[in-house]
Design a binder for these strands. Structure first.
Lengths: 221, 221
DNA sequence: TGACGCTACCGTACACTGTACTAAACCGCT
DNA sequence: AGCGGTTTAGTACAGTGTACGGTAGCGTCA
């Protein structure tokens, strides 16, 4: 009686979304099709439609799964510390799941985890004494920066420390014409230096933004 | 002799890309298929493949077309003014072509217009006396903010001034449970006020970032 | 006992996608 | 007139989301 069917976990909406995230992480969002997803779960395509209305719902669902991995900021903590931690946490999540950045543009129905995340962030700023206006400004600014940075990271053809050189060198040769001297300069003198990691640039911008907000918050409070 | 065929413009790579941009603007990037594109040009799908290797090349091409619409910054101008103008120009272009933001994540082969744009921007910062390190930091920061803002704008279900209210009101009713008090507060006291336009938030963050960079540049120079 | 409906799952079929392969039409040359 | 490269089309195929219609196993009730 130990058939494959009896051994495998029962289907559920949760499990469908978990497997969808895993599949997108491994093979990219383009490889996430109803058929491959069903196969990865040991089922047939149409079985999934019992738990999920359509593929769009899967896409909305996995974006919300990503938010559910992110620790919420503490509304009564020190705002700058909380915003710093949150920013790093969001970036880390988007790095683990690069497909999520591109997905956000097309999905407009936020899930419960997403809403909880937004709510906790707004609460932290308001509790710290930010005016409504400044809260809105700050949130738009911080999220724009975080998402934009994640977008650029996702677009990079290399990942992490040192690997830049291997990839970039062949490309650089096309630039030997001298048409792009400043790009070459930045590449040679900065990006191709050993130990370079684009991800390290994140902290610079984040601190600059938080410094600017500090100044404004002090002026308000 | 005035057949449809003789009247229509001759095909060319340029025209294929122009029509692709127009189609994506009108109907969204998902509607841009080889068949719909061919139909919009009054020809048959396979004819396009003479001018373009495959669909990926079309996608790379239209991203580059978007960059080609953006005025280059002047390397010898006042850097802050040039960066301000450039940021606004990029955002405006990404607003006209919202699909471009999502596309950037998946395309990693930059076209000539894209490269020229990067080169001119880097040149402006370096000419203004920014160190290599600060130039790299500043560029990553500015572009992250611009792209992230455009991403959020593209995800909004409404567009421009005032229309927020019409869309948001029905959604708000679901929040009447009191689970998200701060989101409701921001919505009621800020977003739903007459004259609100999310796009106006762009200037706030941009000025904050440029202020921060000014301080650092002054410290360097 | 047998009819019933509910849950969980699946097989088939259809319209649509990108594009490989093949063939035909066109056009400037000798 | 005929050749050869350039340009355009037709057909076909595998892969996509999913509508439609099952089926197998259950508990409930007459």
């Amino acid at each position: 009686m130990t058939t494959a069917a009896s051994q495998r976990l029962p289907l559920s909406r949760e499990r469908v979304l978990e497997c969808a995230v895993a599949l997108a992480d491994e093979s990219g969002i383009a490889a996430l099709t109803i058929r491959t997803l069903a196969q990865s779960m040991g089922t047939k395509p149409m079985s999934l439609y019992y738990y999920v209305a359509n593929k769009d719902e899967i896409l909305d669902g996995i974006v919300d799964m990503v938010f559910s991995e992110i620790d919420l900021p503490a509304p009564h903590g020190e705002w700058r510390e909380e915003m710093h931690r949150r920013a790093q946490a969001v970036r880390a999540a988007l790095r683990r799941h690069p497909w999520a950045v591109g997905l956000m543009e097309s999905r407009s129905a936020p899930g419960p985890a997403t809403l909880r995340h937004h709510e906790a962030t707004l609460a932290t700023l308001r509790t710290a004494g930010f005016s409504i206006q400044l809260t809105a400004h700050a949130y738009a600014l911080l999220d724009s920066y975080i998402y934009g940075f994640a977008l650029q990271e996702a677009a990079l053809p290399f990942e992490g420390r040192d690997t830049a050189a291997e990839i970039t060198n062949p490309i650089m040769e096309r630039f030997a014409t001298g048409e792009y001297p400043h790009m070459v300069e930045i590449a040679v003198e900065h990006v191709l230096k050993p130990g370079y990691d684009f991800g390290d640039e994140f902290g610079f911008g984040l601190d600059l933004i938080l410094d600017g907000l500090s100044r404004l918050a002090a002026g308000e409070g």
